[in-house]
Design a protein around this nucleic acid. Sequence first.
RNA 1: CGGAGUGUGGCGCAGUCUGGUAGCGCACCUGCUUUGGGAGCAGGGGGUCGAAGGUUCGAGUCCUUUCACUCCGACCA
Length: 573
Amino acid sequence: MRFSHMLIPTTKEVPNDATLPSHIYLIRGGFIQNVGGSGLYNFLPLGKRVLDTVRAIAKEELDAAGCQEVDLAFVTPASLWEESGRYEKYGKELLRLKDRKENAFVLGPTHEEMMVNLVRHTVRSYKQLPINLYQIKTKFRDEIRPRFGLMRGREFLMKDGYSFHKDAEDMKINGFDNMERAYRRIFDRLGLDYRIVEADSGAIGGSGSKEFMVLAESGEDTIVVCDHCSYGANIEAAKRAPKPAPVYADDEAPEMTRTDFHTPGVTTIDALAEFFHIDSHHLIKAVAKKALYDEGVEKIVLFFIRGNDALEETKACNAVDANELIDISEEALRAAGLTPGYMGFNALPEGVIFRMDQELRGENNLIMGANRAEYHTIGVQMPDVSEHYADLVAVQAGDVCSHCGGTLRHTKGIEVGHIFQLGTRYSEPMGATFLDENGKAKPYEMGTYGIGISRLLAAIIEQHHDDRGCIWTPNTAPFAVEIIISNVKKEAEREAGEALYAQLKAAGVEVLLDDRPERFGSKMSDYELIGIPLAVVIGKKLAEGQAEIIVREGLDRVDHPVDTLFDAVMKRL
RNA sequence: CGGAGUGUGGCGCAGUCUGGUAGCGCACCUGCUUUGGGAGCAGGGGGUCGAAGGUUCGAGUCCUUUCACUCCGACCA
């Protein structure tokens, strides 16, 4: 391909809303173009080439793992979503629309319902199972806040796969584990440094899920990793060994008899710790939220955790089985009969539900709000009622790994893949069954598997760039090599460049020839910005029979005789 | 949705407070020179000032309404 004929609108200017390297370089390098803000992007020729490459790698590995590609309708009938119960639950990210006859549709953000519908009409017998279907298709999610370019657009290319099995064991082995292996191969081929972590199952439902996280400082997800073993988890699902009590000299661990204590003006954990001269480990923090349920039902819920812990909102949301948790104002708390700053789980007003962190179970000698103004209760003993307890807290850096006793730390990741063991979450409500060996109808055991194809372009660049631009990994680069003719008006340079270009093309190499009448500086800058792994510069050293070979990673340059350039390039590909 | 801000040629911005004939940089077009790190000179094209309404002799500027986008928090591949 000739640069002069290709639409590659590189710019010097940084788009003012772009903060991440991937966003900046993909725009500046002419890979993508923003469409009227708001998380919509056009893929220009360079971006399309990379996208197709990533897509092709995913397809190859999935097909090799026994999956079959299909292509489902993008506009999907709302009735299917009502069957699964997600029409309401999914929230505003789901773009709902009506046709001219007022029939309701949604733009598919994911396609569990569609795929179950496909299979329930076509698969009847256990003999046809397992089956694993996927598509690579544009999805639409009306994101609350699109940002970071391709990282969180509203429209994006996603591979979504679904497997159907006769029982849970087969789903785990031939579905879930098989996909984990396929995903490893895909991300390995893409050249990414990633980590597989335990994850929350979120809105899609089901149990047992893992995320593939590309490690990058700019990642939107916080992941917890162990510095000693291979444990890794999204903060939303991370576990730790119970937090040990502070170490006290001799027998100075606090002991108290239960009583209410006058604590005027002491409304924060820090103030409380200071007031009683006690480590916040022994305090109970109350975090109030409003939980939202289907059909507009709202409940006030209190979460009780240690004073030195922080609430992990996804865990908390799961603990009360809510669709969503939102913040609640102090006024609303007072209106419900609560006393901000002095809340505890004893003598709670009617209608307020609560959960306590599981690590508090069996503890005593704690201090907690007394549910009346200016009083805290000391010497609190935790009640022994199982349904009140759940895992609620965010694992903190320095906490202890529950697997090996090592130290946990936080790091940031970009979620590029997610695999779920779904079970019968969709097949059952949607009446999708097959006949088993005994002729009995059973719902399919399902797995579901996603890869953010367009997001991967951003993830690759987040991990592979320098201060000049992109550095594509060998298997993802839009071209394998770029030939830069320094000055196209010099016949000799032009001829040497054209000759090498013809040779490489004939050899089947994806090669870009920069034959533009630009100055050398702009061509080099564009090369560095676009980030093709290898370049050959035909320039002023041609007089001595030399050309220059540049490796984008590190920008190392070596001179090489022109007459053996072709072989030298081929050797480096 | 809560908080903050911005809408002016393709892109980035000034002009708005204090109303008086729309400007700068980049990009683009033409010509000449230049060609190893985003060139120089000369000439040129391109803007319903987000939208609607109002005040005024006169509105990019003042008032009202509205829309969109961006940034900081809750969603997810």
